[in-house]
Design a protein around this nucleic acid. Structure first.
Lengths: 341, 341
DNA sequence: TTCGGTAGTGTTATCGCTAACATTCTCACT
DNA sequence: AGTGAGAATGTTAGCGATAACACTACCGAA
């Protein structure tokens, strides 16, 4: 409100003068230092309120050498998975008393990754979370030794950076096993982009289950997460519908494309072919038919990544090269059924 | 790489010593000051490289009084619209040489808004973009006079803060007019949450067109953006399918719910009832049938909001209380057709 | 009474940088 | 050679906060 400081925002010294104390006492009040008389404290707080004083965190960060701000590096922040992850991270950080500065990279290369991390370090963040679901991003992260705490989300575990992720292979196992348990002879798979670690993990889990059950392992159909790529793969599968009874699709958006292709080609789901997706996007429940899928708990991923990061920052746990794995859940809906139902 | 500074990261003075110049000269090199001899410049750059020096932007921000960082306040950052908007803002900011610090509010109230804005100001951001699609958020913004440049995205225009938004009413007009042109007698509407300005704008545009054409204006069916609410409304509409031939749904997710409900009830789209959505999410093209919808250019919204904000910051254009409106596009697909087709 | 401990407060130095001013160096032109 | 303008560089003084230490008052114990 009222400022007797002549235009510019009041600083600590102005508050000190107004309260008749030293600026250090103001600082003590602001930082909840115990050795301040109650009467003095209220006088200072009153002066702060009267002058509309706001602490300059930049000056504070300069001297304390930490900013209570975390950096987040991310790609493709419009995709449901990354968007949810970033949201989870932001909320968890704020619950822990930290704020986040976000850099969304358009392209994934070493230079971009390096620039982003450097920028965040220059800004004085206390730690960095890198959402690096692609192999290239994860490896770009590897040959960076930033000198500040860092944690990778959904990245590959290569030993230099702790990783928090959802167990992709386990999710794929749940999906594939579910289809086999329904009685399907084998399960086809539409994969995500080659470069994505998640895509790889899902292939791995799917293949594991088929191998363990001694089933034929069909070729992986390529996809790029987009509904269109699922549509294309779906058209292809529809052409050989008589040899196929179950498909595990690497994400829900592609599964939607498959459903569309099957609808166009007159392939009935789940009567002729069962479909299981991955992600459980909010739409999946209302696909026709509602999609059986694997749910990932992005909130938990965000919380764990912040836990790990703050562990490094606050306890100085130098070499916590851990790997936190969040388990996925199978959500059974109408797109999966016994064969020939 | 090598640091002869004994553990702690090198500072400008270290570089200066290594290059045999004063720290001020190092500063000049870093800030592209013209009056530096080319030979000196390379010597400094070489020293920077050798020591692995990184400028401390916190110290810089303290003295220059600006951080080249913008704050973003947002809600519901997982919804497609807000997520895309925030992404657009982040990209535009970075293209302009700024970085962003993001606060995602969980709840929308005055206190939350005030805290978020205060936090960002304390952090020393040069300006703030508030993604405030709800009436409550927009009004919380109003009685804040933060003393720094600020711009609202998708907020209501109340005169104190410049606004950038997509023309919701125009989008609704396009959708409704499209349905009337196909020959439908009137158009029903499933609206978004009461509190959202976008929901209101869409109702307004829809009503305008019906009024202008002298058509009956049905009651608005309530929705909350979620597929489930669309499903519920769809069930209701299916029960009176013989009196209805066209529905304009306030977003694509709800339209999906409607499609699902219609499928369950045996209502054929677009044969019996045409449907038009809003947003053009990536999934819409692969709904069954593919959804006719209204596309919003979130990238343009991001760019404009940054333009307006930087206008205030850099040109000090104090009272630019403008309103930038981005036009939407109608995307016609298979869910709309002439009645009784 | 004297002393040490501690609560409450003030003083000074410092974080790493840029702005402002001071100084030196260069060179064209008298 | 002498001069002055301007380029190149150095020196000093902050930015606004916290840390470290110094100081005063007051207490109870010796």
């Amino acid at each position: 409100m009222g400022s007797s400081t002549g235009g510019r925002p009041p600083v600590m010294a102005d508050v000190a003068k107004a309260a008749g104390v030293s600026h250090q006492t103001v600082s003590r009040v602001l930082n909840d230092h115990p050795n301040v008389r109650a009467e003095t404290r209220t006088r200072v707080l009153e002066a702060i309120d009267r002058l509309g004083y706001r602490r300059n965190m930049v000056a504070r960060a300069l001297v304390t050498r930490h900013s209570r701000t975390l950096g987040v590096v991310s790609f493709d922040t419009i995709l449901y998975g990354p968007a949810s992850t970033v949201y989870g991270i932001e909320q968890a950080a704020r619950d822990a008393g930290y704020f986040v500065s976000i850099v969304s990279l358009r392209t994934i290369d070493r230079a971009g990754m390096r620039d982003a991390v450097n920028y965040l370090i220059e800004q004085g963040v206390d730690g960095i979370v890198v959402v690096a679901p692609q192999r290239s991003a994860a490896s770009a992260l590897e040959d960076l030794s930033p000198g500040i705490p860092i944690v990778a989300v959904e990245g590959g575990h290569t030993g230099r950076v702790p990783v928090v992720c959802v167990d992709q292979a386990e999710g794929a196992r749940l999906a594939t096993a579910h289809l086999l348990e329904l009685g399907h002879e084998t399960v086809w798979h539409i994969g995500g982009p080659q470069d994505w670690l998640e895509a790889e993990g899902r292939i791995e889990g799917w293949r594991d289950v088929l191998t363990a059950a001694g089933r034929k392992i069909p070729d992986v159909l390529p996809g790029d997460w987009s509904p269109r790529s699922g549509y294309t793969a779906g058209k292809h599968l529809a052409g050989m519908a008589d040899q196929i009874s179950a498909v595990f699709v690497a994400n829900d958006q592609m599964a939607l494309g498959v459903l569309r292709a099957f609808t166009e080609e007159g392939v009935r789901v789940p009567d002729q072919i069962s479909i299981v997706g991955f992600d459980d996007i909010p739409e999946s429940e209302f696909f026709s038919p509602p999609l059986t899928t694997v749910r990932q708990d992005f909130g938990a991923v965000g919380r764990h990544s912040i836990d790990v990061l703050l562990g490094q920052i606050e306890e100085g746990a130098a070499e916590v090269l851990e790997r936190f794995v969040v388990p996925p859940d199978l959500v059974v809906r109408g797109s999966s059924a016994p064969p020939g139902a």
